[in-house]
Design a protein around this nucleic acid. Sequence first.
DNA 1: TTCGGATATCGATGAACTTCGATACAGAGT
DNA 2: ACTCTGTATCGAAGTTCATCGATATCCGAA
Lengths: 122, 122
Amino acid sequence: MTTTPQLLPMAEPAAAMCCAPLTREAIAADQADLLARKLKALADPTRLRLVSIVAASDGEEACVCDLIEPVGLSQPTVSHHLKILMEAGFLTRSKRGTWAYYRLVPGALGELSHLLDVTASR
Amino acid sequence: MTTTPQLLPMAEPAAAMCCAPLTREAIAADQADLLARKLKALADPTRLRLVSIVAASDGEEACVCDLIEPVGLSQPTVSHHLKILMEAGFLTRSKRGTWAYYRLVPGALGELSHLLDVTASR
DNA sequence: TTCGGATATCGATGAACTTCGATACAGAGT
DNA sequence: ACTCTGTATCGAAGTTCATCGATATCCGAA
């Protein structure tokens, strides 16, 4: 169980939520489910700050040790939030030595942004 | 108490979250709080569908009676979700007769979309 | 004024979430 | 092999949340 290839519980990121922004027509229930899961992963002050700090970090990556102090929470809690952000498809992890470096998934935030955009639909 | 001018518990919509997208620099704790509250209001399948249905409705407005059957939940639950969306600044309500019509707040989704946009910051 | 229909609020219940301390695990150095 | 350090997982505690039935409120019609 140490090198599990990361089965993301959220299906493929770009499949079911590819194109239709929120406001053109009523979205289906399963699309709403998928989008809500992504939004829920982001709808937490701590996780927003983690994403923000990672994105603004030098090299656009940060290890857990760099994130604990800025958010002011315990290390297990920070790891927990990072896991949620990974499972939602916003972050990736790469271990180098004992350190775990997190970085943004390139298109993830932009895709979400596009789905919420009203102007794209009228 | 029938015509309360709607004191939104979230402060002014465009004040503290006006400009800086998530990924240019680390956001402050209070900005993260504000953004998380908005995202949390949207991070529910039912509420996403409500917003979507309202936006896609004829005249871009819908009354509660039109929303109950599509989402398949009880009337109190639908009213509860609509209230949350109103308090978060995504919907407005106007009563005409016994009916309550909800419609989108023009810039609300777009502002959120802009904040999440990565491309705007690099 | 009384009735009926549309909507909002209340109180309760069960599930999900955030957080922590304790602990397990993995890699690097001695 | 042993230890130290960085990180992940586990179990528990407290809080928040979604949902419902029952009820209150509001408004138009008779």
